[in-house]
Simulated scan of single mutants.
Amino acid sequence: MNDSVEPGLTTGAVARLLGVSPVTLRSWDRRYGIGPADHRVGGHRRWRPADIAVLREMCRLTAAGLPPAESARAARALRERDGHADGTAPRSGSDGTPGQAADRVPGPRSSPTPRSSPTPRSSPTPGGPPAGDRGLSAAGVRRECRGLARAAVRLDAPAVEELLDTLVARYGPVVAWEKVMVPVLHAVGRTWETSGDRYVEVEHLLSWHVSTALRRVPSPPARCPGDGAAPGPVLLACVPDEQHCLALEALAAGLGGSGVPYRMLGAAVPVEALGAAVRRTGPAAVVLWSQSRSTANVPLARDVAATGWGVRGARNTPAVLTAGPGWAGPRPAGVLRPLSLREALSALAGARGFSPAPGPA
């Protein structure tokens, strides 16, 4: 965010600037003393650059998963470190802890690691096991989920983007998806379903940024099996009428991060287009995603499994995986149905002739 804001902003203007509701700002002021210096214009409080700097720190720390009271103490410490050039006395919050107002906005500085945040770890090796199960403890999972949910509810897009990119870089796409992204997406979905369709905008913003973070996963050079053969890519597609493809994007990120080439066709792929893509690419495997029973199409899975390519007498057919909760019923013989992202990655590695990389237990 740009720190060059004009002094004397109203509470509503600051709320829009930071993506925090005015009610939240007033609550932080009342409970924790995170408020503007005690000056008013026309009976209304005004926020100066130093006040806004403290708010930014409060937002950053709560997005990192720290409890609000602890975040407030750290944010007030920022104000105390920077001094109070205007000579104003420290102001006290409702908990009696003094805070100070400063006129100047602090320059760039290194952000201290919150004492409750996980120890940074190097990015996982492409194609190797995810690093997260060894480094993301149960407490870490709760903290990461809490921070991401808070940032999403505030519609704080920069914080959501930074948190997701950090998660994927630190733990890999598989762990980030299973341990944090899915739980937070489910929690947000349950919230708007039980609140009269409120917070739909939160789910849309979060879904968009999850998709963006997954698509940023870098792909190392494609691996070949030990015999040197070059099997076709993995073809990823949602069945016709299926619009939900976030889980398929997580699978694509896991494949790409492991050096397995894939072709993503995305949501609601027509039957004819899917058949043409199979014949043109000669895939080692095809993954058909269905989110609900109403979109699962068993005859389609059977037809894809029978679709061949190559010269007569040496025709090839792909392995077919039906993925997603929509495929809960019977499936054609020979069609695989993985029940998790890790199962799907292992099955697809096998379909391309690889021994799955050993992952965490």
Rank of each mutant, 00 (worst) to 15 (best):
R26S: 11
G326W: 04
H186L: 13
V141F: 03
S292F: 13
A77M: 06
W177K: 00
V278D: 00
A131S: 14
G254I: 01
V5P: 01
G65V: 05
P120C: 02
G310N: 08
A253W: 00
P338C: 10
W327A: 09
P338H: 07
V217I: 03
R150K: 07
A277E: 14
A149H: 13
I52E: 08
T62S: 12
R48S: 15
T119F: 02
D29E: 15
L235G: 01
R79T: 14
A102K: 05
G127A: 02
A159K: 02
G257D: 09
D29I: 03
V210A: 08
A222E: 14
G324T: 09
L255S: 02
L155E: 12
T281P: 02
A13S: 14
S27T: 15
P173H: 05
R263A: 13
G256R: 08
V210L: 11
A277S: 09
P106C: 13
D241G: 11
G226S: 15
M58V: 05
S110I: 08
G87N: 10
P225H: 11
A63T: 05
R190I: 06
L66R: 06
S71E: 11
S195I: 09
V298G: 10
M181Q: 02
W208D: 15
R280V: 07
R154V: 11
R279Y: 04
G83N: 11
Q291V: 06
A152Y: 06
V287L: 04
R280D: 15
S110E: 13
T88K: 08
T191D: 14
W47Q: 07
L9R: 06
T97Q: 11
G232W: 07
R79C: 11
G43Q: 08
R79M: 13
S346R: 08
L18H: 02
